[in-house]
Design a binder for these strands. Structure first.
Lengths: 152, 152
DNA sequence: GAGTTATCCTATCGTTCCGATCGGATTAAA
DNA sequence: TTTAATCCGATCGGAACGATAGGATAACTC
């Protein structure tokens, strides 16, 4: 269950955009420097985000990127989906499309529950949250316990 | 966030093993047929599971595989970790090892919360649960809502 | 219009992972 | 000795991943 570099970069760049208060477009290179991401690579990612309606772009001098929607209306899940596709999938199929037999029958419930819990986190956090440096209560509560920060 | 075929197969084969009540080892081929998985591929997977201490094996006639621990002491998370590594990782690093700056600072909390929620599901389900066709309350509750079963 | 600043598009590249298969060595029971 | 299994290492085609490059296009400034 990995979050790709692409998704990570995409969220970070979007957060940076959300933090740019004045309405002026931010060039890809400025975002790349702010988040220390290869700027050619980031450009490709921003292209995806534009195609998916997360950001809007303006070309030429004084050009760059802007969020296509208000920052509090774009969730981390939106951004991840834009570059990675469905949040959770098993063997390239969505959980709901799987069929299990025999002793694995209830495994389907497990994957569906997993997706619910993933959504609960990623859909609760907006780019406005990230830009303001705060996190919603759900996230705060989940990370409150020390065990949350410990590796396996 | 994908669950690989390998992990899916691994969990299904383990569940099948948990369902084999008599203590006799089950040959890889029987597991493969029961769960409709390429049996040469499954053999490689079972090899991983053995190295990770999830299953034990016996060679020769009447050989096959057995769970190394009681079925109610092996979780789905254990099996997934055995074949895929850490449950959640971002850009090949564990969340706790990441560093974020600027507007992405609180993104770390998001990934950690994500991992907590993933663990909450996968560590709650044991192979005994799967074998008996039941799911723990956590999973039942999460999948109770209709929205859980709907795609994006 | 010339120069400059950007996005945009397409192509490529090397590496790794993924899903899967094969041949043969080894072990154990009948 | 035969038969039934695991075990080990190699290989394979294809896809994905992370990243880079060249040039076309657009828009603003002077």
């Amino acid at each position: 269950m990995r979050i790709s570099a692409k998704a990570d970069y995409a969220v970070r760049a979007s957060a940076e955009l959300a933090a740019a208060t004045d309405g002026r477009p931010v060039p890809a290179e400025a975002l790349a420097r702010a988040q220390d991401v290869p700027h050619r690579f980031l450009e490709a990612i921003l292209s995806d985000l534009r195609r998916e309606g997360i950001v809007a772009s303006r070309r030429g001098a004084n050009g760059g990127y802007v969020l296509a929607r208000p920052a509090d209306r774009v969730t981390v899940a939106d951004v991840v989906r834009a570059v990675e596709g469905p949040l959770v999938f098993v063997r390239d199929a969505r959980p709901s499309d799987l069929e299990y037999t025999g002793s694995a029958a209830s495994l389907l419930h497990v994957w569906v529950a997993l997706r619910v819990n993933v959504r609960a986190v990623l859909e609760s956090v907006t780019l406005a949250d990230l830009a303001s440096g705060t996190v919603p209560d759900v996230v705060r509560d989940l990370t409150a316990d020390d065990g949350a920060w410990v590796n396996p």
